[in-house]
Amino acid sequence: MSANPNWEPGTFFHLHEEDPVEEYENFKLGMWIFLATEVLLFGGIFAGLFIFKYNWPEVFRLGSQALDWKLGSVNTVILLCSSYTMAMAVDGAQRGKNKQLKLNLLLTLLFAFGFLVVKYFEWSSKFSYGYFPGSDLFFSVYFMSTGLHLLHVLIGMSFIGLVYFRARQERYHEENFGGVEVCGLYWHLVDLIWIFLFPLLYLLRH
């Protein structure tokens, strides 16, 4: 960020300059550590899932059967594709190919939007059948975990939107792609969480 002369040095809008390579590495390590906290945040819900499944196997079996694994699979594929396009966006930024970067960011946003649409239909069908958080423990776990995941999808989408906005200003190139890569890390985490949520919620029907 360039220094804003209206602010004193050492204030939010007027930072010291840092070595770009160092800044890039710090930024990335910072994001990895933040992802560690995210894993633990979801870890609490996963722990709840396993414990309640252990205590109430029947509730979880019936709940799992009530979910539509086809919609879940579609969403899994969508998120995997979005992860791929995000990785390609980072690749584009690393190689200084701004077009590749922008195209892939848009595709990622598109996939993310697709995920939201599928989720909308999934949730509304559950509501119409009378399944709500609190209906039983399975649906509490289901709505809490997918809800928290959904929140992360939305945060990730805003992050990608910001990066896209900056990519249009041609801010990213071979020497400066930390922002894209860190955004990618966050988005991949959203995918990672879903990779575990999908089988545990949809596929354990026996």
Binding site: T37, L40, L41, G44, I45, G134, D136, S140, M144, L148
Partner: peptide
């Protein structure tokens, strides 16, 4: 870094418990 997220999710679930009665921490709901 590593302990705080757990209280985060716990308190979030407690809030949900009060708002939506999700039953995580309520013996009456399993």
């Amino acid at each position: 870094i590593l302990a705080t997220p757990i209280i985060g999710i716990t308190l979030a679930l407690l809030i949900m418990e009060r708002v939506l009665e999700i039953g995580f921490f309520s013996a009456a709901l399993g």
